[in-house]
Amino acid sequence: MKYNFDWSIVLTGEYHQWLIDGLWLTLKISALSIILATALGTLVAVLRMTKVKALEWFSLAFTEFFRNTPLLVQIYFWYFGSYVLLPEAVNKWLYKQDFEFAAGVIALTVYTAAFIAEEIRAGIFAIPKNQLEASRATGLSFLQAYRYVILPQAFRIIIPPLISQFLNLIKNSSLVMTIGVMDLTYMARQIESHTFRGFEAFTAATLIYLVISLIVSLSINLYNKHFLRQIKY
């Protein structure tokens, strides 16, 4: 193997800036999708508990469909095919915005929400049933009982698996490069094709992903060690 390493290319100068920009975009799209996916996932999980047949079916179909189709296909669907679902005026407006970014956020949100909904459902099942009964008996409505009693407890239990879903989302966000969102993976690929310095570019990007993963895993461990054991039923 004849290859002269030139690490300066990713440590200084223009290409270094590209990587930083890519990292920034990866963090931005991940953070936004994490917030939206958690909200949507919670909603879908609670719908499954309502005992209203139509809502339960919707929730079931949502989780089953989006968990069992590839994220990449979903990204292509939202990017290329979603215009059929929306009125003309909305489409025109969307195309003037950063539509790639929006399609990426929607795809990541919906895909991850399906997984998060299942985690939250598992958390809700872990809460003893009499919690709901007791809170209903004190006069809370169904939604209030979930909002103030069930969900706060469920979330504490499922924080570790929830965070690992967030980590999956961050790693999955690399797929948005396929529709031209300039994230970390996109930039690494771009540097490779500009300079033929694939080793340096991919190593740098991989290391950045690894550091993010490491930080997230460590935070899960810390949580397990210091907070989780205090919760007992």
Binding site: M1, K171, T185, R189, G198, F199, A205, L210, S213
Partner: peptide, 24 residues
């Protein structure tokens, strides 16, 4: 841990773009 912390797409790029350099 190395593999689980890396996106699959990154791994695919590693094997696709860098194998020719290593293997010739």
């Amino acid at each position: 841990e190395l593999v689980r912390g890396t996106p699959l797409l990154m791994l695919i790029f590693w094997f696709y773009f860098l194998a020719p350099i290593v293997l010739g």
